[in-house]
Design a protein around this nucleic acid. Structure first.
Lengths: 140, 140
DNA sequence: TACTTGCTTGGAGTGCACTCAAGGGTTTTA
DNA sequence: TAAAACCCTTGAGTGCACTCCAAGCAAGTA
């Protein structure tokens, strides 16, 4: 019931607890976004202080780190929420989680291919402009 | 589908002209999007038939192909419009166009790096789940 | 005590890139 | 000639991922 007296002190039982602004500083996610993540079920419910303020744990930070990786893949928030639900539901959802991640992996690979393609076009075009700039005139 | 020939008396006989639904079929862009592209200045003004309907040329299709590549890079519509403006303004904007493309290239490379990173995490996680599925239990 | 800072909530607002609707004209086909 | 198919415009609506607002509580500081 009554733990952690002063706000941002370190350990009381080897358990560090972070305020929302500390998590904002560490993750780069805004406080708005952190609250929103919790609201939509993308975070397990975060522990609270006696006055109702959020106290994040290192485990929460790890989860946010992983979520950040999923975001980086371009996965939709809806899919990330789905994944979070599966994790909460327990071990019997492992197969579905793997499938979700494998689908995402296929999409990431496709996206990398697309970007690599577009990059080649960009390279070509930039070379063209470089020629134009160096010599007086070029084509197109 | 065959009305594009009947209109070609106004221009040279070798000039193919496409209706908006032909362009939709060829590019995969919806008619809505094609009109919208023109409205916001992402297309040079498309030629019209005597009754005001759009008649796209092969040059327009080429431009749309290039725009598609820019889209694939993740470039914003605002930046693509800027690029289109520069092209319309003529040869003296070549330097700025090159800079815009080079900035985009840097962003694409960064994005590919990010995706490659996230892909490694995905690979690791999927391997974890594969182990769990095959053997009885694993970790996290 | 008064002020400042930080946090809470639900709900509204924003920016992006489309996407659709309404109402009307034109062209092709039966 | 009439129906069906196609196209036009302006303006409103959609979905996503945040982002901000208002009103209020709580804790630390002068």
């Amino acid at each position: 019931m009554s733990q952690s007296q002063s706000q941002s002190q370190s350990l009381s039982l080897t358990q560090t607890r972070y305020t929302i602004s500390e998590v904002e500083a560490r993750t780069g996610l805004s406080q708005h976004t952190l609250r929103w993540y919790e609201r939509i079920g993308l975070m397990p419910h975060v522990d609270r202080s006696h006055s109702g303020q959020r106290r994040f744990t290192d485990k929460d930070l790890d989860w946010l780190g992983f979520v950040g990786k999923l975001r980086a893949t371009g996965m939709s928030v809806a899919d990330m929420v789905r994944y979070a639900e599966l994790v909460r539901e327990g071990e019997h959802t492992v197969e579905e989680r793997r499938e979700l991640l494998e689908r995402t992996r296929r999409e990431v690979r496709a996206r990398i291919g697309e970007l690599t393609d577009a990059l080649a076009v960009l390279d070509y075009k930039i070379d063209m402009y470089a020629m134009k700039t160096v010599s007086g005139k070029g084509q197109q």
